[in-house]
Structure formats: C-alpha cells, structure tokens
C-alpha cells in the first residue's frame, strides 16, 4: 500500500431542499508519474491514483479518469445535487490495487 494516503473531503452537513452543494476533495498521494529517474538514472515506475468517483446514495455524481499529469496530492472540486438526505461515498483507485474510501452524511432540511 502506498504510504500515508489519507483522504480529505469537505461536504456541508446540511443543505436546504433544492439547493446544490460544492464538494472539495484532497488525498495525500505522491502520484509518481513514471517520467522521473532516480539518482542512478533508472526510471521510477509509475504509481498513481488512476480513478476517482463520487456517488450519492449509490448514484453517480462524478467519475474521473486520472492520468500521471494530475499533481501530487490530487485535488478535485465539483458541484452535486442532493435530492434527499443520505450518504456521499468517495472512492480513489490506486495503480497498486488499493482502494481508498471516505463517506459523508448530509441532511436535507
């Protein structure tokens, strides 16, 4: 497993009915591009998060395919509709097979 991978997500706890929200996500990950060389001139193998998804109560908000050009500690910001109270699930897929998830509850008032 990649070291020190820690997802951070910002979702409001509450939203008024009919309003949309802005979500921000940040995950610590080195996003090794596969383009760099080590001190001995050997290529450091690619090791990135290659996909990020956000769903709400099982339905997709956004599904991002990520390439090595995404910066270290990947950041995303996007807007979501919240049709009812429920749970956002965030998932990051690592090249090495690891999957990191985070969930956030939100209430519609």
């Amino acid at each position: 497993m990649a070291e020190n991978v820690k997802p951070r997500v910002r979702v409001p706890r509450e939203v008024a009915a009919g309003e949309t929200i802005t979500i921000k996500t940040l995950i610590s990950h080195k996003m090794e591009s596969g383009q760099r060389k080590d001190g001995d001139g050997n290529v450091i193998p690619r090791s990135i998060i290659n996909r990020f998804t956000c769903t709400f109560n099982g339905e997709t908000v956004i599904d991002v395919q990520m390439e090595p050009a995404i910066s270290t500690n990947p950041f995303f910001e996007f807007d979501a509709a919240v049709p009812e109270s429920g749970t956002f699930e965030f998932t990051w897929y690592d090249d090495d097979g690891d999957v990191y998830t985070e969930t956030k509850e939100i209430a519609v008032s």
């Binding site: 820690k6 910002r10 270290t72 500690n73 950041f75």
Partner: peptide
C-alpha cells in the same frame, strides 16, 4: 482545505 500543507498538519 485548499492548502496541501494541511495534509501534513493532520
């Protein structure tokens, strides 16, 4: 939240 340095504060 926009400051990646806060990852390391955590």
């Amino acid at each position: 939240f926009d400051n990646p340095g806060m990852i390391f504060v955590d």
